[in-house]
Design a protein around this nucleic acid. Sequence first.
DNA 1: CGCCTGTTTGAGAAGGCTCAACGGACGTGG
DNA 2: CCACGTCCGTTGAGCCTTCTCAAACAGGCG
Lengths: 241, 241
Amino acid sequence: MITCPNCSLRKLQAFKTLEPSRLAFIRKIKSAHLSLDAGADIVVPEQDSDEMYTLFSGWAFRYKELADGRRQILNFLLPGDLVGLQASMFNTPQHGIAALTEVQLCVLPRRKVWTVFETMPDLAFDITWLGAREESLIDHNLLAVGRMNARERVAALIIGLYKRSNALGLAKDGVFAFPLNQNHISDALGLSLAHTNKTLAYLRRIGMFTLEGGMMNLTNPRALQRMGQVFDAEFQQRPLI
Amino acid sequence: MITCPNCSLRKLQAFKTLEPSRLAFIRKIKSAHLSLDAGADIVVPEQDSDEMYTLFSGWAFRYKELADGRRQILNFLLPGDLVGLQASMFNTPQHGIAALTEVQLCVLPRRKVWTVFETMPDLAFDITWLGAREESLIDHNLLAVGRMNARERVAALIIGLYKRSNALGLAKDGVFAFPLNQNHISDALGLSLAHTNKTLAYLRRIGMFTLEGGMMNLTNPRALQRMGQVFDAEFQQRPLI
DNA sequence: CGCCTGTTTGAGAAGGCTCAACGGACGTGG
DNA sequence: CCACGTCCGTTGAGCCTTCTCAAACAGGCG
Protein backbone atom coordinates (compact mmCIF):
# COMPACT_ATOMS: atom_id res chain seq x y z
CA MET A 1 0.00 0.00 0.00
CA ILE A 2 1.36 3.40 -0.97
CA THR A 3 1.01 5.79 1.92
CA CYS A 4 3.08 8.74 3.00
CA PRO A 5 3.70 7.50 6.55
CA ASN A 6 5.68 4.52 5.30
CA CYS A 7 7.51 6.37 2.55
CA SER A 8 11.24 5.70 2.45
CA LEU A 9 11.87 9.42 2.45
CA ARG A 10 11.51 9.24 6.17
CA LYS A 11 14.36 6.78 6.37
CA LEU A 12 16.59 9.33 4.70
CA GLN A 13 15.85 11.63 7.61
CA ALA A 14 14.06 13.93 5.28
CA PHE A 15 10.51 14.91 5.98
CA LYS A 16 11.32 14.09 9.54
CA THR A 17 8.29 15.32 11.34
CA LEU A 18 5.02 14.24 9.95
CA GLU A 19 2.48 16.45 11.62
CA PRO A 20 -1.08 16.27 10.34
CA SER A 21 -0.82 19.64 8.65
CA ARG A 22 2.25 18.64 6.62
CA LEU A 23 0.78 15.32 5.82
CA ALA A 24 -2.40 16.92 4.58
CA PHE A 25 -0.41 19.32 2.45
CA ILE A 26 1.67 16.61 0.92
CA ARG A 27 -1.38 14.59 0.17
CA LYS A 28 -2.97 17.54 -1.52
CA ILE A 29 -0.11 18.29 -3.90
CA LYS A 30 0.52 14.68 -4.69
CA SER A 31 -1.63 14.11 -7.72
CA ALA A 32 -1.36 10.34 -8.26
CA HIS A 33 0.51 7.11 -7.97
CA LEU A 34 2.07 5.42 -10.91
CA SER A 35 3.25 1.86 -11.39
CA LEU A 36 5.68 0.98 -14.17
CA ASP A 37 7.28 -2.24 -15.33
CA ALA A 38 11.00 -2.85 -15.36
CA GLY A 39 12.58 -1.20 -18.38
CA ALA A 40 9.95 1.50 -18.74
CA ASP A 41 11.00 5.07 -19.52
CA ILE A 42 10.22 7.53 -16.76
CA VAL A 43 11.87 10.58 -18.26
CA VAL A 44 12.81 10.69 -21.93
CA PRO A 45 15.76 12.91 -22.93
CA GLU A 46 14.87 16.13 -24.73
CA GLN A 47 11.22 15.52 -24.17
CA ASP A 48 9.40 17.98 -21.96
CA SER A 49 8.00 16.49 -18.85
CA ASP A 50 5.43 18.10 -16.64
CA GLU A 51 5.98 15.93 -13.66
CA MET A 52 8.37 15.22 -10.91
CA TYR A 53 8.29 12.00 -8.94
CA THR A 54 9.25 10.41 -5.73
CA LEU A 55 10.37 6.80 -5.94
CA PHE A 56 8.20 4.84 -3.53
CA SER A 57 9.45 1.37 -4.35
CA GLY A 58 11.79 -0.27 -6.84
CA TRP A 59 14.99 0.89 -8.52
CA ALA A 60 15.58 3.26 -11.43
CA PHE A 61 18.59 4.89 -13.06
CA ARG A 62 19.51 8.17 -14.69
CA TYR A 63 21.60 8.08 -17.88
CA LYS A 64 22.93 10.06 -20.83
CA GLU A 65 23.70 8.87 -24.32
CA LEU A 66 26.01 9.98 -27.10
CA ALA A 67 24.86 10.23 -30.70
CA ASP A 68 26.40 6.87 -31.60
CA GLY A 69 24.70 5.02 -28.76
CA ARG A 70 27.38 4.96 -26.10
CA ARG A 71 25.56 5.21 -22.80
CA GLN A 72 26.65 6.44 -19.40
CA ILE A 73 24.56 5.67 -16.33
CA LEU A 74 24.83 8.68 -14.05
CA ASN A 75 23.39 7.25 -10.86
CA PHE A 76 20.93 4.74 -9.51
CA LEU A 77 17.73 5.72 -7.77
CA LEU A 78 16.45 3.82 -4.75
CA PRO A 79 13.25 4.21 -2.77
CA GLY A 80 12.92 7.67 -1.28
CA ASP A 81 14.89 9.36 -4.04
CA LEU A 82 13.60 12.26 -6.02
CA VAL A 83 13.06 11.39 -9.66
CA GLY A 84 13.35 14.20 -12.15
CA LEU A 85 14.20 17.19 -9.98
CA GLN A 86 16.64 18.37 -12.61
CA ALA A 87 14.13 17.70 -15.35
CA SER A 88 11.56 19.75 -13.50
CA MET A 89 13.94 22.67 -13.06
CA PHE A 90 14.74 22.87 -16.75
CA ASN A 91 12.60 23.15 -19.76
CA THR A 92 13.87 20.00 -21.41
CA PRO A 93 15.77 17.34 -19.53
CA GLN A 94 19.25 16.45 -20.77
CA HIS A 95 19.12 12.96 -19.35
CA GLY A 96 16.85 9.97 -19.37
CA ILE A 97 15.48 8.04 -16.43
CA ALA A 98 14.38 4.43 -16.76
CA ALA A 99 12.93 1.87 -14.38
CA LEU A 100 15.39 -0.85 -13.45
CA THR A 101 12.79 -2.96 -11.69
CA GLU A 102 9.07 -2.59 -11.39
CA VAL A 103 8.58 0.77 -9.67
CA GLN A 104 5.92 2.72 -7.85
CA LEU A 105 6.07 6.49 -8.15
CA CYS A 106 4.32 9.33 -6.39
CA VAL A 107 3.57 12.08 -8.85
CA LEU A 108 4.13 15.76 -8.16
CA PRO A 109 3.00 18.07 -10.96
CA ARG A 110 5.75 20.42 -12.00
CA ARG A 111 3.74 23.56 -11.33
CA LYS A 112 3.18 22.46 -7.77
CA VAL A 113 6.91 22.49 -7.10
CA TRP A 114 6.68 26.22 -6.99
CA THR A 115 3.74 25.99 -4.61
CA VAL A 116 5.89 23.98 -2.25
CA PHE A 117 8.53 26.69 -2.21
CA GLU A 118 5.91 29.32 -1.62
CA THR A 119 4.04 27.69 1.20
CA MET A 120 6.22 25.03 2.80
CA PRO A 121 9.78 26.30 3.14
CA ASP A 122 10.88 23.30 5.14
CA LEU A 123 9.66 20.96 2.43
CA ALA A 124 11.41 23.13 -0.15
CA PHE A 125 14.55 22.81 1.89
CA ASP A 126 14.15 19.04 1.91
CA ILE A 127 13.91 19.04 -1.87
CA THR A 128 17.07 21.08 -2.18
CA TRP A 129 18.78 18.80 0.28
CA LEU A 130 17.78 15.72 -1.68
CA GLY A 131 19.15 17.38 -4.80
CA ALA A 132 22.46 18.08 -3.09
CA ARG A 133 22.57 14.50 -1.87
CA GLU A 134 22.13 13.19 -5.39
CA GLU A 135 24.88 15.46 -6.60
CA SER A 136 27.12 14.08 -3.90
CA LEU A 137 26.49 10.55 -5.18
CA ILE A 138 27.35 11.60 -8.72
CA ASP A 139 30.50 13.24 -7.44
CA HIS A 140 31.59 9.91 -6.09
CA ASN A 141 30.76 8.12 -9.33
CA LEU A 142 32.81 10.65 -11.23
CA LEU A 143 35.75 10.12 -8.92
CA ALA A 144 35.44 6.36 -9.45
CA VAL A 145 35.13 6.52 -13.22
CA GLY A 146 37.85 9.11 -13.61
CA ARG A 147 40.45 7.89 -11.19
CA MET A 148 39.89 4.26 -10.20
CA ASN A 149 40.83 1.06 -11.99
CA ALA A 150 38.24 -1.55 -12.90
CA ARG A 151 38.42 -3.52 -9.65
CA GLU A 152 38.14 -0.46 -7.49
CA ARG A 153 35.23 0.86 -9.52
CA VAL A 154 33.23 -2.32 -9.25
CA ALA A 155 33.97 -2.56 -5.53
CA ALA A 156 32.92 1.04 -4.99
CA LEU A 157 29.68 0.53 -6.89
CA ILE A 158 28.67 -2.58 -5.02
CA ILE A 159 29.53 -1.21 -1.60
CA GLY A 160 27.81 2.08 -2.37
CA LEU A 161 24.59 0.37 -3.36
CA TYR A 162 24.84 -1.89 -0.34
CA LYS A 163 25.13 1.04 2.02
CA ARG A 164 22.18 2.78 0.46
CA SER A 165 20.08 -0.37 0.62
CA ASN A 166 21.12 -0.87 4.18
CA ALA A 167 20.11 2.65 5.18
CA LEU A 168 16.66 1.89 3.83
CA GLY A 169 16.40 -1.36 5.77
CA LEU A 170 16.62 -3.35 2.55
CA ALA A 171 19.76 -5.29 3.44
CA LYS A 172 20.46 -7.88 6.07
CA ASP A 173 23.79 -9.43 6.97
CA GLY A 174 25.42 -8.28 3.78
CA VAL A 175 22.64 -9.65 1.60
CA PHE A 176 20.52 -7.37 -0.55
CA ALA A 177 18.59 -7.23 -3.81
CA PHE A 178 20.84 -6.34 -6.74
CA PRO A 179 18.79 -5.85 -9.89
CA LEU A 180 21.56 -4.60 -12.19
CA ASN A 181 22.83 -6.76 -15.01
CA GLN A 182 26.40 -6.54 -16.28
CA ASN A 183 25.36 -4.11 -18.96
CA HIS A 184 24.15 -1.65 -16.34
CA ILE A 185 27.33 -2.08 -14.35
CA SER A 186 29.56 -1.46 -17.33
CA ASP A 187 27.57 1.60 -18.39
CA ALA A 188 27.68 2.99 -14.88
CA LEU A 189 31.43 2.49 -14.53
CA GLY A 190 32.60 3.42 -18.00
CA LEU A 191 33.91 -0.09 -18.71
CA SER A 192 33.33 -2.49 -21.59
CA LEU A 193 30.94 -5.34 -21.04
CA ALA A 194 33.64 -7.96 -21.47
CA HIS A 195 35.99 -6.36 -19.01
CA THR A 196 33.20 -5.86 -16.49
CA ASN A 197 32.47 -9.55 -16.66
CA LYS A 198 36.11 -10.47 -16.09
CA THR A 199 36.42 -8.06 -13.19
CA LEU A 200 33.28 -9.43 -11.54
CA ALA A 201 34.61 -12.94 -12.02
CA TYR A 202 37.85 -11.92 -10.36
CA LEU A 203 36.14 -10.38 -7.35
CA ARG A 204 33.97 -13.42 -6.99
CA ARG A 205 36.96 -15.71 -7.25
CA ILE A 206 38.79 -13.96 -4.42
CA GLY A 207 35.73 -14.30 -2.24
CA MET A 208 34.29 -10.81 -2.23
CA PHE A 209 30.72 -11.76 -2.99
CA THR A 210 28.31 -14.22 -4.50
CA LEU A 211 25.39 -13.25 -6.70
CA GLU A 212 22.49 -15.43 -7.62
CA GLY A 213 18.87 -14.91 -8.35
CA GLY A 214 19.33 -11.15 -8.15
CA MET A 215 20.53 -11.35 -4.55
CA MET A 216 23.97 -10.01 -3.78
CA ASN A 217 25.76 -11.56 -0.84
CA LEU A 218 28.81 -9.72 0.42
CA THR A 219 31.15 -12.33 1.81
CA ASN A 220 33.95 -9.91 2.61
CA PRO A 221 32.48 -6.43 2.94
CA ARG A 222 35.52 -5.08 4.76
CA ALA A 223 37.90 -5.90 1.96
CA LEU A 224 35.42 -4.71 -0.64
CA GLN A 225 35.00 -1.41 1.13
CA ARG A 226 38.73 -0.95 1.38
CA MET A 227 39.13 -1.74 -2.30
CA GLY A 228 36.44 0.77 -3.26
CA GLN A 229 37.63 3.44 -0.82
CA VAL A 230 34.06 4.20 0.13
CA PHE A 231 33.59 5.86 3.46
CA ASP A 232 30.55 6.02 5.65
CA ALA A 233 30.77 9.75 5.67
CA GLU A 234 29.68 9.74 2.06
CA PHE A 235 26.22 8.78 3.17
CA GLN A 236 25.19 11.72 5.17
CA GLN A 237 22.26 12.46 7.35
CA ARG A 238 20.19 15.54 7.10
CA PRO A 239 21.64 18.56 8.83
CA LEU A 240 19.95 20.31 11.70
CA ILE A 241 19.29 23.37 9.58
CA MET B 1 33.61 47.07 -7.41
CA ILE B 2 31.49 44.28 -5.95
CA THR B 3 27.87 45.21 -6.14
CA CYS B 4 24.77 43.09 -6.52
CA PRO B 5 23.46 44.88 -9.59
CA ASN B 6 26.45 43.80 -11.67
CA CYS B 7 26.64 40.28 -10.29
CA SER B 8 27.02 37.60 -12.93
CA LEU B 9 24.12 35.74 -11.41
CA ARG B 10 21.93 38.01 -13.42
CA LYS B 11 23.53 36.80 -16.62
CA LEU B 12 22.49 33.28 -15.74
CA GLN B 13 18.94 34.52 -15.77
CA ALA B 14 18.72 33.89 -12.09
CA PHE B 15 17.72 36.65 -9.74
CA LYS B 16 16.10 38.17 -12.74
CA THR B 17 14.14 40.96 -11.22
CA LEU B 18 16.04 43.19 -8.90
CA GLU B 19 13.44 45.21 -7.11
CA PRO B 20 14.59 47.37 -4.23
CA SER B 21 13.03 45.07 -1.65
CA ARG B 22 14.88 42.01 -2.94
CA LEU B 23 18.07 43.94 -3.27
CA ALA B 24 17.80 45.15 0.28
CA PHE B 25 17.16 41.63 1.49
CA ILE B 26 20.12 40.21 -0.35
CA ARG B 27 22.33 42.92 0.95
CA LYS B 28 21.20 42.19 4.46
CA ILE B 29 21.97 38.47 4.41
CA LYS B 30 25.24 38.92 2.60
CA SER B 31 27.70 39.21 5.40
CA ALA B 32 30.92 40.09 3.61
CA HIS B 33 33.12 39.97 0.58
CA LEU B 34 36.21 37.87 0.43
CA SER B 35 39.18 38.00 -1.89
CA LEU B 36 41.48 35.03 -2.27
CA ASP B 37 44.60 34.37 -4.27
CA ALA B 38 44.88 31.71 -6.94
CA GLY B 39 45.42 28.33 -5.35
CA ALA B 40 43.72 29.17 -2.07
CA ASP B 41 41.40 26.63 -0.45
CA ILE B 42 37.81 27.77 -0.27
CA VAL B 43 36.30 24.58 1.12
CA VAL B 44 38.48 21.91 2.70
CA PRO B 45 37.25 18.29 2.54
CA GLU B 46 35.96 16.86 5.82
CA GLN B 47 36.28 20.21 7.48
CA ASP B 48 33.10 21.87 8.66
CA SER B 49 32.36 25.10 6.98
CA ASP B 50 29.86 27.65 8.15
CA GLU B 51 29.62 29.56 4.98
CA MET B 52 28.27 29.41 1.50
CA TYR B 53 29.53 31.66 -1.24
CA THR B 54 28.68 33.16 -4.52
CA LEU B 55 31.51 33.53 -6.97
CA PHE B 56 31.63 37.17 -7.99
CA SER B 57 34.75 37.05 -10.12
CA GLY B 58 37.47 34.55 -11.01
CA TRP B 59 37.45 30.79 -11.46
CA ALA B 60 37.42 27.96 -8.94
CA PHE B 61 37.03 24.19 -9.06
CA ARG B 62 35.49 21.42 -7.01
CA TYR B 63 37.46 18.18 -6.54
CA LYS B 64 37.72 14.92 -4.66
CA GLU B 65 40.80 12.94 -3.76
CA LEU B 66 41.58 9.32 -3.04
CA ALA B 67 43.72 8.26 -0.12
CA ASP B 68 46.80 7.84 -2.32
CA GLY B 69 46.51 11.29 -3.82
CA ARG B 70 44.75 10.62 -7.10
CA ARG B 71 42.56 13.63 -7.71
CA GLN B 72 39.39 14.11 -9.72
CA ILE B 73 38.17 17.58 -10.55
CA LEU B 74 34.38 17.46 -10.49
CA ASN B 75 33.56 20.76 -12.14
CA PHE B 76 34.77 24.27 -12.67
CA LEU B 77 33.09 27.29 -11.13
CA LEU B 78 32.72 30.53 -13.04
CA PRO B 79 31.36 33.89 -11.95
CA GLY B 80 27.76 33.64 -10.81
CA ASP B 81 28.09 30.07 -9.60
CA LEU B 82 27.18 28.97 -6.14
CA VAL B 83 30.18 27.82 -4.14
CA GLY B 84 29.56 25.27 -1.44
CA LEU B 85 25.84 24.63 -1.68
CA GLN B 86 26.46 20.94 -1.09
CA ALA B 87 28.85 21.72 1.70
CA SER B 88 26.25 23.90 3.33
CA MET B 89 23.58 21.22 3.10
CA PHE B 90 25.73 18.60 4.80
CA ASN B 91 27.54 18.60 8.05
CA THR B 92 30.92 17.92 6.54
CA PRO B 93 31.69 18.43 2.89
CA GLN B 94 32.94 15.42 0.93
CA HIS B 95 34.76 17.54 -1.60
CA GLY B 96 37.20 20.39 -1.69
CA ILE B 97 36.91 23.69 -3.52
CA ALA B 98 39.96 25.69 -4.50
CA ALA B 99 40.50 28.97 -6.28
CA LEU B 100 41.89 28.58 -9.77
CA THR B 101 42.55 32.27 -10.25
CA GLU B 102 42.28 35.15 -7.87
CA VAL B 103 38.63 35.20 -6.81
CA GLN B 104 36.13 37.48 -5.17
CA LEU B 105 33.40 35.82 -3.14
CA CYS B 106 30.18 37.03 -1.59
CA VAL B 107 29.67 35.32 1.73
CA LEU B 108 26.36 33.90 2.90
CA PRO B 109 26.40 32.48 6.43
CA ARG B 110 25.11 28.96 6.50
CA ARG B 111 22.36 29.70 9.00
CA LYS B 112 21.01 32.38 6.72
CA VAL B 113 20.34 29.85 4.01
CA TRP B 114 17.39 28.70 6.01
CA THR B 115 16.25 32.29 6.39
CA VAL B 116 16.19 32.58 2.62
CA PHE B 117 13.92 29.57 2.34
CA GLU B 118 11.66 30.94 5.01
CA THR B 119 11.24 34.43 3.74
CA MET B 120 12.15 34.56 0.05
CA PRO B 121 10.76 31.53 -1.75
CA ASP B 122 11.76 32.80 -5.15
CA LEU B 123 15.35 33.20 -4.01
CA ALA B 124 15.20 29.72 -2.51
CA PHE B 125 13.98 28.45 -5.85
CA ASP B 126 16.91 30.16 -7.54
CA ILE B 127 19.31 28.39 -5.21
CA THR B 128 17.76 25.03 -5.99
CA TRP B 129 17.87 25.81 -9.68
CA LEU B 130 21.54 26.71 -9.50
CA GLY B 131 22.15 23.43 -7.71
CA ALA B 132 20.35 21.50 -10.43
CA ARG B 133 22.33 23.35 -13.05
CA GLU B 134 25.59 22.37 -11.43
CA GLU B 135 24.43 18.78 -11.30
CA SER B 136 23.68 18.95 -14.99
CA LEU B 137 27.24 20.07 -15.68
CA ILE B 138 28.63 17.20 -13.64
CA ASP B 139 26.38 14.81 -15.54
CA HIS B 140 28.04 15.90 -18.72
CA ASN B 141 31.51 15.52 -17.26
CA LEU B 142 30.64 12.03 -16.14
CA LEU B 143 29.43 11.16 -19.62
CA ALA B 144 32.67 12.49 -21.05
CA VAL B 145 34.96 10.73 -18.60
CA GLY B 146 33.04 7.46 -18.76
CA ARG B 147 32.32 7.15 -22.45
CA MET B 148 34.51 9.44 -24.54
CA ASN B 149 38.09 8.98 -25.73
CA ALA B 150 40.81 11.46 -24.93
CA ARG B 151 40.26 13.72 -27.94
CA GLU B 152 36.56 13.92 -27.41
CA ARG B 153 36.97 14.64 -23.73
CA VAL B 154 39.37 17.51 -24.26
CA ALA B 155 37.17 18.95 -26.99
CA ALA B 156 34.10 18.70 -24.77
CA LEU B 157 35.86 20.42 -21.89
CA ILE B 158 37.16 23.32 -23.95
CA ILE B 159 33.87 23.91 -25.74
CA GLY B 160 31.92 23.64 -22.50
CA LEU B 161 34.05 26.25 -20.79
CA TYR B 162 33.86 28.45 -23.84
CA LYS B 163 30.08 28.36 -23.88
CA ARG B 164 29.89 29.19 -20.22
CA SER B 165 32.35 32.05 -20.61
CA ASN B 166 30.43 33.27 -23.58
CA ALA B 167 27.14 33.27 -21.70
CA LEU B 168 28.77 35.54 -19.13
CA GLY B 169 30.06 37.92 -21.77
CA LEU B 170 33.63 36.84 -21.08
CA ALA B 171 34.38 35.56 -24.58
CA LYS B 172 34.70 37.35 -27.88
CA ASP B 173 35.14 35.81 -31.30
CA GLY B 174 36.15 32.48 -29.90
CA VAL B 175 38.75 34.01 -27.59
CA PHE B 176 38.48 33.69 -23.83
CA ALA B 177 40.52 33.43 -20.64
CA PHE B 178 41.57 29.87 -19.94
CA PRO B 179 43.29 29.65 -16.55
CA LEU B 180 43.63 25.85 -16.35
CA ASN B 181 47.01 24.20 -16.63
CA GLN B 182 47.43 20.71 -18.05
CA ASN B 183 47.31 19.23 -14.60
CA HIS B 184 43.82 20.61 -14.07
CA ILE B 185 42.73 19.34 -17.46
CA SER B 186 44.02 15.84 -16.84
CA ASP B 187 42.43 15.70 -13.38
CA ALA B 188 39.13 16.92 -14.75
CA LEU B 189 39.10 14.40 -17.58
CA GLY B 190 40.50 11.35 -15.86
CA LEU B 191 43.59 11.26 -18.08
CA SER B 192 47.28 11.13 -17.29
CA LEU B 193 49.27 14.31 -17.58
CA ALA B 194 51.41 12.97 -20.40
CA HIS B 195 48.49 11.85 -22.48
CA THR B 196 46.66 15.10 -21.89
CA ASN B 197 49.66 16.94 -23.24
CA LYS B 198 49.81 14.78 -26.34
CA THR B 199 46.11 15.14 -26.97
CA LEU B 200 46.29 18.91 -26.64
CA ALA B 201 49.23 18.94 -29.02
CA TYR B 202 47.22 16.92 -31.51
CA LEU B 203 44.21 19.23 -31.36
CA ARG B 204 46.48 22.23 -31.74
CA ARG B 205 48.24 20.62 -34.68
CA ILE B 206 45.00 20.02 -36.58
CA GLY B 207 44.05 23.64 -36.06
CA MET B 208 41.41 23.48 -33.37
CA PHE B 209 42.82 26.18 -31.15
CA THR B 210 45.83 28.15 -30.02
CA LEU B 211 46.62 28.91 -26.41
CA GLU B 212 49.06 31.48 -25.15
CA GLY B 213 49.30 33.71 -22.17
CA GLY B 214 46.25 32.05 -20.65
CA MET B 215 44.07 33.08 -23.58
CA MET B 216 42.35 30.31 -25.51
CA ASN B 217 41.60 31.06 -29.14
CA LEU B 218 39.21 28.66 -30.84
CA THR B 219 40.22 28.55 -34.47
CA ASN B 220 37.69 25.91 -35.46
CA PRO B 221 34.87 25.94 -32.91
CA ARG B 222 32.54 24.03 -35.20
CA ALA B 223 34.78 21.03 -35.52
CA LEU B 224 35.65 21.16 -31.84
CA GLN B 225 32.00 21.19 -30.89
CA ARG B 226 31.28 18.26 -33.15
CA MET B 227 34.17 16.33 -31.69
CA GLY B 228 32.99 16.99 -28.16
CA GLN B 229 29.34 16.35 -28.93
CA VAL B 230 28.34 19.32 -26.82
CA PHE B 231 24.98 20.80 -27.57
CA ASP B 232 23.66 24.22 -26.83
CA ALA B 233 20.74 22.68 -25.03
CA GLU B 234 23.09 21.65 -22.28
CA PHE B 235 23.31 25.26 -21.22
CA GLN B 236 19.82 25.99 -20.22
CA GLN B 237 18.06 29.11 -19.23
CA ARG B 238 15.95 29.47 -16.17
CA PRO B 239 12.45 28.11 -16.50
CA LEU B 240 9.37 30.26 -16.20
CA ILE B 241 8.42 28.65 -12.89
C1' DC C 1 72.38 32.13 -11.45
C1' DG C 2 69.63 28.45 -9.56
C1' DC C 3 65.10 27.02 -8.50
C1' DC C 4 60.38 26.11 -9.25
C1' DT C 5 56.42 25.32 -11.86
C1' DG C 6 54.61 23.86 -16.00
C1' DT C 7 55.20 21.82 -20.66
C1' DT C 8 57.16 18.52 -23.99
C1' DT C 9 58.78 14.24 -25.75
C1' DG C 10 60.10 9.30 -25.99
C1' DA C 11 60.17 4.28 -24.93
C1' DG C 12 58.07 0.57 -23.17
C1' DA C 13 54.34 -1.64 -20.52
C1' DA C 14 49.62 -2.76 -19.59
C1' DG C 15 44.97 -2.27 -18.57
C1' DG C 16 41.12 -2.33 -20.92
C1' DC C 17 38.92 -2.70 -25.65
C1' DT C 18 37.02 -5.10 -29.80
C1' DC C 19 35.55 -8.92 -32.01
C1' DA C 20 33.90 -13.40 -31.97
C1' DA C 21 31.99 -17.44 -30.36
C1' DC C 22 29.69 -20.27 -27.00
C1' DG C 23 26.61 -21.71 -23.13
C1' DG C 24 22.72 -21.66 -20.14
C1' DA C 25 18.06 -20.22 -18.75
C1' DC C 26 13.67 -19.12 -20.05
C1' DG C 27 9.56 -18.37 -22.81
C1' DT C 28 6.85 -19.24 -26.91
C1' DG C 29 4.82 -21.61 -30.56
C1' DG C 30 4.24 -25.61 -33.45
C1' DC D 1 7.44 -31.94 -25.75
C1' DC D 2 10.74 -30.24 -28.51
C1' DA D 3 12.67 -26.53 -31.57
C1' DC D 4 13.79 -22.04 -31.62
C1' DG D 5 14.72 -17.22 -30.35
C1' DT D 6 16.23 -14.11 -27.00
C1' DC D 7 18.56 -12.34 -23.17
C1' DC D 8 22.37 -12.65 -20.37
C1' DG D 9 26.66 -14.25 -18.79
C1' DT D 10 31.31 -16.28 -20.05
C1' DT D 11 35.67 -16.81 -22.33
C1' DG D 12 39.65 -16.21 -25.54
C1' DA D 13 42.85 -13.82 -28.83
C1' DG D 14 44.89 -9.90 -30.33
C1' DC D 15 45.11 -5.08 -30.57
C1' DC D 16 45.44 -0.25 -29.10
C1' DT D 17 44.63 3.60 -26.30
C1' DT D 18 46.35 5.25 -22.47
C1' DC D 19 49.61 4.83 -18.58
C1' DT D 20 54.14 4.92 -16.28
C1' DC D 21 58.58 6.32 -15.94
C1' DA D 22 62.15 9.28 -17.28
C1' DA D 23 64.38 13.11 -18.95
C1' DA D 24 64.79 17.48 -20.88
C1' DC D 25 63.19 22.12 -21.81
C1' DA D 26 61.07 26.90 -21.19
C1' DG D 27 59.85 30.73 -18.56
C1' DG D 28 59.50 33.53 -14.29
C1' DC D 29 61.36 34.93 -9.97
C1' DG D 30 64.20 35.71 -5.86
